[in-house]
Amino acid sequence: MSGICDGRVVVVTGAGRGLGRAHALAFAAEGARVVVNDLGVGLDGGPGPDSPAGQVAEEIRAAGGEAVAHGGDIATGRGAVSLIRAAVETYGRLDTLVSNAGFLRDRMLVNLGEGDWDAVIRVHLTGHFLPLKYAAAHWRAEAKAGRTPVARVVHTSSGAGLLGSVGQGNYSAAKAGIVGLTLVAAAELARYGVQVNALAPAARTRMTERTFAETMAAPATGFDAMAPENVSPLVVWLGSAESTGVTGRVFEAEGGRITVMEGWRPGPTNDIRARRTPAEAGETARKLLAAAEPPGAVYGA
């Protein structure tokens, strides 16, 4: 196999099913050697009957590619260290990290338990931070040794993290946190040859089948806009050397659509260089809001 990722070593978390599986297969099709990570849990984060990581790795090998499976919990330091070590010890290097693992425990805020909050934050946000931390440490060591990498990180956010989603306060907060983590990492790691971007995908997976219930069914003929494989080409490009100069960006991808998201930046402003009364502050705020772009609608509102 050869392609735009020929010779690169790519780690994909949550790669046993859905988007992660599609990403792993797409990277392999472009010549990458892939470490397929999946803990093999159920949609709610509970134990699953069988980890699918080995099945995806075998699928890649059967197609002529190179892949190994990793079943560690990447939301723990030990699991994240072993994930990075699996790439370096198996293939001698690490070029790209794609963090995709996650699950849902949806509740309205008044019914959202502390345990369900912690579990989703742990898997999504901590599960992005720890692999990033140890991959970055590896790349920093490489750069300091005079072997500056052409390294790439692709994080998985969500429209819920950009706009919010009713009944998904924990998930929305975690996915918004991933965007913040992406921006900081892009700024901090550039000196070591690392680019970091985030993707907010929309596709048919176990996690989204309820969210997109009305549009999830694959068409009998024609283009299947909700297929996970539609998202993977952008992920592969971002994870390749071809994406040089692209970092600190957030993209949306769905079907045949790719959008560069433009996040928080200063809008209408007013500075009187003096302290206002609460009434004056309110009057100013209303004038500024009248001149500002309206926010996007929260999903499910």
Rank of each mutant, 00 (worst) to 15 (best):
G239T: 11
A227E: 13
F251D: 00
S232T: 09
P233Q: 03
E229K: 12
E254W: 15
G255R: 05
P228C: 00
A225F: 14
S243H: 07
F223P: 04
N230H: 13
E254Y: 15
G222N: 01
S240Y: 09
F223Q: 05
L234S: 01
S240V: 08
F251C: 02
E242H: 15
A220S: 14
E252W: 09
W237N: 06
E252P: 01
M226Q: 11
V250Y: 02
S240N: 10
T244H: 14
S240T: 10
N230K: 13
R249W: 02
E252A: 10
F223G: 06
L238F: 10
E254N: 15
T221H: 15
E229D: 12
T247G: 04
V250C: 04
R249T: 02
P219Q: 10
V236T: 07
A220L: 14
V236W: 03
V246D: 05
D224R: 08
V246G: 07
V236M: 04
G239D: 09
A241F: 09
S243R: 06
P233S: 07
V236H: 04
G245L: 10
G255F: 04
E242C: 13
V250M: 01
A227R: 14
L234H: 02
T221E: 15
F251G: 02
E242V: 14
V250S: 00
G222R: 02
F223K: 06
V246W: 11
F223S: 08
R249G: 01
E229N: 08
N230R: 12
A225M: 14
W237G: 04
P219D: 08
E254Q: 15
E252S: 10
P219Y: 06
E229G: 12
R249S: 03
G239P: 11
E252T: 11
V235C: 03
V236L: 05
V235S: 05
E254D: 13
E229M: 09
R249K: 08
T221M: 13
E254R: 15
G248W: 01
T247Y: 02
T247S: 12
V231C: 06
G239A: 11
E229Q: 13
P233V: 05
A241H: 09
R249M: 05
A253E: 00
A220T: 13
M226L: 12
A225T: 13
V246A: 09
A220R: 15
E254G: 13
G222M: 01
F251M: 00
L234T: 01
A225L: 14
V231D: 03
